[in-house]
């Protein structure tokens, strides 16, 4: 994923400017590319259009659950026996996707953590694999359905390393405009390093949570705003990997 993929960056870049995020308001639908009303959709959304045009809105709405209507081609990848695209209506569970469709891990070892919703999605622990894959249900537990990306990790995965990777990824991709992401992502990597090397651990864990709060609420776009999802979910659901005892779960 390149930095210029985010819609606000994309518009700037197409206009010939540096690919940084433009603030909202105004929203692109009102004032977007070259100041004109602009609708930005990704491939999945556009791919949903033909069936709705052909068969009608009701047909489409018939699939799914709650407010999550239609289908989604879930992308199962990572340490999975049978990876690929599985298009199903919203509402099935992650467990079904992992085992009925995916066949469990490729290594045969127990699945430890599943990142749902792309690189900025939360890690979903086994205790949550029976939730229906539905936008609101996932959001309620601090997880993300997003575009339906699913990456599977077995029990050799070090969640602290993965959390560090999330911050590192953010630092690499950051456009650099807003402070929480520009400085926060780099500092995030350093803080996690201090945690795992046992330097001032209690304070740094506290700092990490504060940093995630700043990034979620302060970032200009979803890049910085969602990076805390994998980080906090790793910290909350897999504290042992960080060398700390299970603390009260804090929602992202």
């Amino acid at each position: 994923m390149c930095a210029v993929k985010k819609p606000p960056c994309l518009l700037e870049s197409i206009e010939g400017k540096r690919g940084t995020v433009r603030p909202k308001p105004p929203i692109p639908a009102l004032e977007g590319l070259f100041g004109k009303p602009t609708v930005i959709n990704n491939v999945i959304t556009l791919a949903s259009v033909p069936v709705i045009m052909a068969k009608g809105a009701s047909f489409y709405k018939d699939y799914g659950v709650g407010r999550s209507q239609g289908t989604l081609p879930f992308q199962i990848a990572g340490n999975i026996l049978r990876g690929g695209l599985v298009e199903k209506a919203f509402g099935l569970t992650l467990r079904e996707l992992l085992f009925d469709f995916g066949g469990g891990s490729r290594t045969g070892r127990p699945i430890k953590a599943v990142q749902v919703g792309g690189p900025l999605g939360a890690y979903v622990p086994e205790s949550q694999w029976d939730l229906p894959l539905d936008y609101e249900a996932y959001a309620a537990v601090g997880a993300v359905v997003g575009h339906g990306g699913i990456v599977v990790h077995d029990d050799t995965a070090d969640m602290a390393k993965l959390a560090r990777y999330a911050m590192e990824f953010c630092a690499l991709e950051s456009c650099g405009k807003c402070t929480p992401c520009r400085i926060g992502s780099t500092r995030g990597v350093e803080v996690i390093d201090r945690i795992t090397s046992n330097q001032n651990k209690e304070q740094q864990v506290h700092l990490l949570r504060d940093l995630c709060n700043t990034m979620v609420n302060g970032s200009l776009c979803a890049m910085g705003g969602k990076t805390p999802f994998p980080v906090l979910s790793a910290l909350n659901h897999y504290p042992a990997d960080f060398g700390i005892e299970a603390l009260e779960t804090e929602k992202a």
């Binding site: 402070t179 929480p180 400085i183 926060g184 500092r187 504060d210 940093l211 709060n213 700043t214 609420n217 302060g218």
Partner: peptide, 16 residues
């Protein structure tokens, strides 16, 4: 909430 966020942002600024 805003107090905490602003301190968080400033803390990042001053770290560099």
């Amino acid at each position: 909430k805003l107090q905490e966020l602003r301190k968080g942002v400033m803390e990042l600024y001053i770290s560099d």
